[in-house]
Design a protein around this nucleic acid. Structure first.
Lengths: 156, 156
DNA sequence: TGCAAATGGTTTCATATGAAACTATAACGT
DNA sequence: ACGTTATAGTTTCATATGAAACCATTTGCA
C-alpha cells in the first residue's frame, strides 16, 4: 500500500480550505446522513419521499393549512409542496377541500389513512433522533439546543 | 387578519412531531441555508456548482488524487464526481492525467486557472463561515466544535 | 498462464428539482 | 363597477441527481 497522501503544504500563495474543519461542509454531511437514515426507515415501506413526509408532519400538527402555509412551515418551495400534495392526495393520505371564502386556497388535512401512517412513522423518527442525541451527554445537548437557536435563520 | 392558527392538541391517539424542535429538520434547514449563501457568492460569477467547488477544494489540498479518492474525501458519490470532473476539465480548471501504473486511474490536480479561481473563492467561503460563527461567542463555538466531532459519522 | 472477480470511471435511464410561465381568483384603488 | 395588481396553486421546461448497467483494466488465484 502506498504511503498515505499528505496535504500539500499551504504555501504563501495558496490557502486551501480544510473541508473537514469547515462548518458548512460538516453540517451538510451530518444533516444528510441523519435525514437519510430516517428516510430509509419509511421510504421503501410507505413509498413516500422526505418532502412528502414533511408535509404530513406539518399537517399532523396544524390541521386545515393551505398549501402556501405548508410551504412556509416546511421551508420548502411551493412547487415542491404542490407536487407532494398531489401524490399524497392521490394516495389517500391527505384530504384537500376548497376554502369557503377564497376559492384559490386549499384546506388540507390528514385522512384516516394519513393519520395511521403518521402514527407509525413519527415514533420511528423520534427514535432515530434519540439515537443521534444519545451520542451526547446532557450538557452537550443543552448547548446544541442553544447554539441551534442562535444560528437558526429568522425570517426577514 | 385571522387568529394565528393553533396546534392541534396532542390527543391520546396522535403525537405529532414538532418539526421546529426536531433535530434532523433543524439541521437540514440550517445546513441548506448556509451552503446556499456561500454558493450564491460564486455560482453566478464562476458558473460552477457546489459539487464542483467541493471537488476543487479537495484537489487544492490533496494534489494528484484519483476520482475515487475525491469521492471519498467529499462524501459525494462517484457519478457526481465523474460529472463534476468532466465539467471542470472542460473548463480548464482541473487537469487529468492517467496513472503510471494503473491505466484505470485518473491523476487529478488544479490547473493555473483552477488555482486562480480557488484563491478568489476560498477567502469568500471562509468569510461566510466567520459570519455564521460570529453569531456565537467563544464558549459556544468551542462546544459546537466538540459536538460536531461527536456526532460526525465515522466510516464503518 | 488464463480466467473469474474486483476496481476505476463513464454512460444510461428514470426521477427529482426549481425557475419561470401560466390559470384562476381575490384585493385594491379609482 | 372596472381595470390593475397581488395571491394560491399548477404546469412546463431545463437541469440535477442516483442506481444500475456498462467498459476497460487490474488483481487474485487455480
Amino acid at each position: 500500500m502506498p504511503a498515505k497522501r499528505q496535504p500539500v503544504p499551504a504555501t504563501a500563495e495558496h490557502a486551501p480550505l480544510q473541508l473537514e474543519h469547515f462548518l458548512p461542509y460538516r453540517l451538510s454531511i451530518l444533516s444528510n446522513t441523519i435525514s437519510q437514515t430516517i428516510a430509509d426507515d419509511y421510504q421503501r415501506r410507505y413509498d413516500i419521499s422526505v418532502t412528502e413526509w414533511r408535509v404530513m408532519a406539518v399537517l399532523a400538527r396544524f390541521d386545515g393549512l393551505s398549501a402556501r402555509e405548508v410551504a412556509e412551515r416546511t421551508a420548502m418551495d411551493k412547487v415542491a409542496v404542490s407536487r407532494a400534495l398531489a401524490r399524497l392526495v392521490t394516495a389517500g393520505r391527505v384530504s384537500r377541500a376548497i376554502h369557503d371564502n377564497d376559492k384559490r386556497r386549499s384546506v388540507l388535512g390528514l385522512t384516516e389513512a394519513g393519520w395511521a401512517m403518521h402514527d407509525e412513522v413519527a415514533p420511528m423518527a423520534r427514535a432515530r433522533e434519540r439515537e443521534v442525541l444519545a451520542k451526547l451527554d446532557a450538557e452537550e445537548r443543552a448547548w446544541l439546543e442553544r447554539i441551534l437557536d442562535k444560528l437558526q435563520p429568522t425570517k426577514p
